[in-house]
Design a protein around this nucleic acid. Structure first.
Lengths: 258, 258
DNA sequence: ATGCCAAACTGGCTTGAGCCAGTAGTGGCT
DNA sequence: AGCCACTACTGGCTCAAGCCAGTTTGGCAT
């Protein structure tokens, strides 16, 4: 249809040829592509050039490369497959992001939470804006949660609480809550959550996230910025959830107006 | 905190050093990084290696590279900035994805729609599943819409309609609808939309999308798969909206239960 | 039959060289 | 003052070669 004919760059030529072969299912999901040296030979280029072509496909998420084994066509198109055998976060219209433990149980997975980091820090600007605190001094307590389903890391949550609220309470230093919801702690402090706002976007993972969540190259993350609002209408807690975009999605049904 | 000390690979060393300089604001947003040749000289490596280091930062979205000018630190973290001076798609809890023309008008932008492609084709699997049609024969009419706000491409929409519905109607071949909503056409055919389902995920852009939407490297897209359901409960139309993730987001407020 | 090891693959990364293409400043010519 | 050509930068892409590090396999010794 609309493929640009004026391709001359060798690396693109190779990448395009391979991409077409993949789309035409000449190479099927799981198949091994020709090795870099083979490609270089058949296309009369240096191995570097063939290598770059594969790098392009890898960046597109079409191909997985394994050291010593080869480059393989990705098994599934980057698409949500809710209800697949892997744990999937879900965002629901009714409740927003489902609480992790409940959702894991619903999907028949074991749930575990680690707290790799907790302490007083300078908040990122977006968080400071929403909490109404300074972004140039340690005005919040930050708590990082790493969520595991069946011992696979699936979600990263970073909760920010203004220091003025957390100060003196167990929230400031407590390393683990175990099974308890963090909201019950707030209630002990006289903060009852009444509303929440959730902002959802997507971006590429930071290096630390790539490691913590074992994110393959070329896969973006979905970021949910959750703002808890108390009975006085004040934002008193912000949590940033980060999860692999290829295993998660938002799914909602709605009546149509207009 | 958790930076791996055992770095030995030259390209990573350079990338890490630059990344730290950027995080420490030695290089500030908008600043130009040293040229590839300079980096190669200061780190005693080949230019290719310095080049790869910059490529890594580019893939992370930390840096923009401009041919002939240099590599520049990205001005803003990839974050939604609704209400900024650029057009932003919005997904709303109440109505789902806002109709393009209405949202553009609300934001004071001119709206224009192009139809680069229309015709009968084989549907992708996800679309075929939702429409309940075959995915190995040309069972749908595909219509691509490219949406411009202030003459900048901001959104790509691909509508799929089963051939059995479109056959014989203007939908099958009509090249432009101009200002008219596509839904009014359905109503003429006796299909009244009563419900819609929207599935939202994120992924890296396909090459064609990178070109059509002028997506910078390292920026993912948000994909909204919209399924229209008629008065008989049948899915009769699927539209895939694709938009830059760094300019779009979903924003919703909700009461809290549990 | 078993186990081990070396050879022959695979990709990972770097070197140093070269040519092309886009950008911006400079200075001379009109 | 205005234009334009030149030049010295910038990144884009490729080549040919080499060494290292995982993976697989087949043959050899036990």
């Amino acid at each position: 249809m609309s493929q640009p004919e004026r391709e001359q760059l060798p690396s693109r030529r190779i990448a395009d040829a391979l991409r077409q072969s993949i789309e035409a299912r000449t190479f099927r999901p799981g198949d091994r592509l020709p090795s870099e040296r083979e490609l270089a030979a058949t296309y009369q280029t240096a191995r570097n050039t063939a290598r770059e072509a594969i790098g392009l496909l890898q960046a597109e998420g079409l191909v997985d490369v394994q050291h010593g084994r080869g480059a393989f066509v990705r098994r599934q198109a980057p698409m949500i497959r809710l209800g697949a055998d892997r744990y999937s976060n879900r965002v629901r219209r009714e409740t927003g992001l489902s609480p992790f433990r409940a959702e894991a149980q619903r999907q028949g997975k074991t749930a575990r939470v680690e707290v790799p980091e907790i302490g007083r820090t300078i908040p990122p600007r977006d968080v400071a804006d929403r909490l109404g605190v300074a972004d140039d001094e340690p005005s919040v307590v930050q708590r990082v949660n790493l969520y595991f389903a069946d011992d696979e890391p699936v979600q990263l949550g970073t909760t920010y609480i203004p220091w003025t609220i957390a100060e003196g309470s167990v929230l400031a230093t407590e390393a683990k809550t175990g099974t308890g919801s963090i909201y019950s702690r707030f209630e002990e402090l006289g903060h009852q959550i009444t509303r929440a706002r959730e902002e959802i976007t997507a971006r590429m993972p930071r290096p630390a996230e790539t490691v913590a969540l074992a994110i393959p190259p070329g896969v973006p993350v979905i970021e949910v910025l959750h703002t808890g609002i108390d009975q006085d209408g004040r934002a008193f807690e912000v949590t940033r959830f980060v999860m692999r975009a290829d295993l998660n999605g938002l799914d909602y049904n709605l009546p149509v107006e207009d």
